[in-house]
Design a protein around this nucleic acid. Sequence first.
RNA 1: GCUCGUAUAGUGUAGUGGCCCAUCAUGAAGGACUCUCAUUCCUUCGACCCGGGUUCAAAUCCCGGUACGAGCACCA
Length: 493
Amino acid sequence: METEAPHLLEKREKKERREGLPELKNAVKGKVVLRFAPNPNGPLSFGHARGIVINGNYAKEWDGKLILRFDDTDTVVKPPLPEAYQQIPEEAEWLLGFKPHRIVIASEQMPHYYEHAMLMLKKGFGYVCQCSGENFKEFRVSKTECPCRKNNVNLNLELWTKMTDGTFVPGDAVVRVKTAMDLKNPALRDWPALRIQNTAEHPHPRKSIGSKYRVWPLLDFQSAVEDKIQGVTHIIRGKDLMDSTRKQVLLYEHFGWTYPETLYWGRVKVHEWGGFSTSQMRRDIEAGLFTGWDDPRLPTLAALRNRGITANALRDFWVELGVTQKDISVPLSTLYSHNTKIIDDAAPRLAFIRQPENIKIEGEYPNDIKVEVHPNHASRGMREFDVSSKMIWIEQEDLMKSEVRLKGFANIEITGKTARVGSIERNDRRPIIHWLPESSTTNATLLMAEDGEMQHIEGKLESHSYPEGTMVQLERIGYARIIDSSTLIFTHS
RNA sequence: GCUCGUAUAGUGUAGUGGCCCAUCAUGAAGGACUCUCAUUCCUUCGACCCGGGUUCAAAUCCCGGUACGAGCACCA
């Protein structure tokens, strides 16, 4: 057979499961330019992390560049938050493990947008439209051209001046891109590119910009022009922006440019979180409903980080979800399981006694008890407990059980508030509980966000010398992050 | 209403006409290890939305239906 029909012996290779993200189309190593463009109206949320992780991963994979761009062109509906300009780059770097290669602030690029707007008017593929929003909506629905569409170049330029010099007020005029009114998709018909904002009443929060401009580009125009200026090669974004791509392609055709490759992802909902919007969170924080952007009840990156979710876990999580266009709903436990994998090996074990009950131990036993810092790493040493005072703390819930084993210590039989020590050796299958000697404990609070409520769980924490920020595992409870000498924040079980 | 998109186990995901009685992870159940309800390891469970068509062959292509989501803002 070997000689007669060798092909029959060839084992067909089983197709390998693709690892990581799908391959980028039309990508050239070293030439890929991607961008992540949040509105700096607040710090980053869980959802933003997807944009950073996916774009960042591709940038890394293709030896390309990642641009962090602030799309801060709205001063009225979603005004930017000044702190966000510092916080977002810092959060992005934490999440990525590297600094974004370039930072672009849209409000500083206004001259470019003006230049392109005027170019558009001069070349005749844009016009100043003085119809009201409602009127234009009717034109759009009925596929009829609005009268302003016939303006000649000179008139358009004249009207543009009235937009910029303050003759016109918000609502009086917008600049539209001439597409066609009979396009199948109504969303694309002569879409608006720039509008007037009342920046006297609503100045841009960045002082250097303030009330300097009245006419501001809308997302579709600003983003399109900026992508061209920055040489973006690939755009990866939510599929809610699909029509935005189509609008921008029409604009690119007018300018004679080639549109970047585009990839979309669907909506992600997290079972445990309802609808949080950045604007709403901002109001609630200002109203004192939350302690800040890092309040553990919030779905912000700052909050997750504060709770002890690692950047690595977040990256693994988003890469695993990939870039499918499906709308999905995931439980937080998926993120937690990624996090556990990353933190468990390093997390020292500590005992934390909730609702502590002080009980007396009677009988024969050694006074020095040793328990491992980490059960899988003997080299990390032992925790030492001195029980010569004969008094120990156990959880109230464990007090109800009569026969238990004190972890690393002895079997006991509890009667009321005293415990009779039996075997020092473990010689049966009775449940094991955690405990602490009366000394060498500190009073501590475990903060836990559950169902949108903050729980402050008071208890006795084993004395330790780990620095703030250390991830520990509280035996039989779960992982937690040390905030200060008397506060822990619960990460997950 | 018009337009666009998506549909694989409980939840995610691989799969682009034959390697698929369908991948991997997570989850659940059971077990091993373990002086934590942790970690690790093993076993088991479980899916191609429905109906037509094209083809020797369809999870994969086409048509219709259904469900869900998005856009039609002088928000991003």
